[in-house]
Simulated scan of single mutants.
Amino acid sequence: MSETTKRRGLSQWLGIVVVLGLLALLLRHVEWDAVRASFSKVDLRFIPVLVFLVALNFLIRSWRWRYLLVGGESMSFRSLVDATTAGFMASFLLPFRAGEVARPWVLTRWESISFGSAAASIVVERVIDALVIIGVLSIAAEWIVDAPDWLGAGTRVLGLIALVGLAMMLMAYFFSRTFSKLGRRMIRVFLFPRFLSGLRNALYQLMDGFLDGLKAISSGRQLWIVMITSLALWLEMAVFYQVCLWTLGLQLSPLAGIMVMVLVALAIAAPGPPGFLGTFQIGCLAALGLFGVNREMGLSYAVVAHVVQAACIIPAGLWILHARGLKLRDSVRSARMAQSDPGDA
């Protein structure tokens, strides 16, 4: 195992400790009797709607993915849906967002595409998702009454990052060679000490993967489809979180569902424990706190929303692997190998 891999592994585990410590800090004054009492308010009539919304989200996500893959439009839609589901199942069972590695690996079992090309599409997907989520946050935050200072300051910073990110994405799309040279030069300038060579090489790989993924978008039509589908994907996820509010009897404005979607997405973006444990709850508590929901109800909400997703994704992913003749341990092993040494995946 290389020194760079060891440092990466140490930083990932340190991240988990920080996340769980922050969650413990947030929950230190929670009245657990009130949490148990709030579960009695769950309206089971909404559960089928939530299950449908989870399934719909995966269909939209898979449809978008075909436009981010080289030759994706000719691929079987079932393969894209199955790989997406199996990948997210891996993230629920393994730490460090392993599904983002397992998903392209699983797709290579069924379609004629290299792992590197499929993985590059995930890099582009994450960048586009970040731009859309930050854009939605910038708009939604303006409508929150008595918003805390941290939200306004954070929104402005993230909005600026989104604008810079969008400009860089367009530059990379239309002037890939120039962007590659400029990007490498900036990385060398800012990360010149020898002991940062591991980070420098990791950023080179990330940038190359991003550029390779952008090559799959070969026309303005494809780019337009990807952006519109991305917006639909995240607004549909906001509907899921809004229905979760109704499930617990919380009659809040649609703005609440949007903010839960945004803050959960930002919270789980960082690698963490299996199933986004900790980061998911932190995102829910932060979002619902903006609307005066106490921690006890916020925690109950987070548990219901999290359990519904896990109960849909894990069994579906396991069934897909079984039906397709793949074994869970093979996808787990591939994800771990790719995480420890991305260059050899």
Rank of each mutant, 00 (worst) to 15 (best):
residue 244 C to P: 03
residue 281 Q to W: 01
residue 269 A to R: 02
residue 280 F to D: 07
residue 250 L to I: 01
residue 285 L to E: 00
residue 173 Y to L: 14
residue 157 V to Y: 12
residue 208 D to G: 08
residue 222 Q to W: 03
residue 267 A to D: 08
residue 157 V to K: 15
residue 279 T to V: 05
residue 208 D to M: 13
residue 262 V to Q: 06
residue 220 G to S: 14
residue 238 A to F: 02
residue 216 A to V: 07
residue 174 F to C: 13
residue 268 I to M: 08
residue 200 R to A: 10
residue 216 A to K: 04
residue 201 N to C: 09
residue 232 A to Q: 06
residue 260 V to E: 02
residue 270 A to F: 05
residue 254 P to D: 07
residue 233 L to F: 07
residue 279 T to N: 09
residue 152 G to L: 13
residue 244 C to H: 03
residue 272 G to R: 00
residue 263 L to Q: 10
residue 269 A to I: 04
residue 241 Y to G: 03
residue 275 G to H: 03
residue 259 M to V: 12
residue 247 T to W: 00
residue 249 G to N: 09
residue 257 G to F: 00
residue 214 L to T: 10
residue 191 L to C: 08
residue 196 L to I: 06
residue 180 S to I: 00
residue 229 T to G: 15
residue 155 T to P: 04
residue 232 A to F: 15
residue 271 P to H: 05
residue 178 T to E: 11
residue 263 L to M: 14
residue 264 V to E: 07
residue 240 F to Y: 12
residue 263 L to D: 12
residue 152 G to R: 14
residue 197 S to C: 11
residue 235 L to N: 02
residue 220 G to Q: 09
residue 247 T to E: 00
residue 195 F to Q: 13
residue 218 S to V: 03
residue 198 G to P: 09
residue 255 L to F: 10
residue 282 I to C: 04
residue 221 R to I: 07
residue 168 M to T: 10
residue 271 P to S: 07
residue 229 T to A: 15
residue 216 A to L: 09
residue 202 A to T: 07
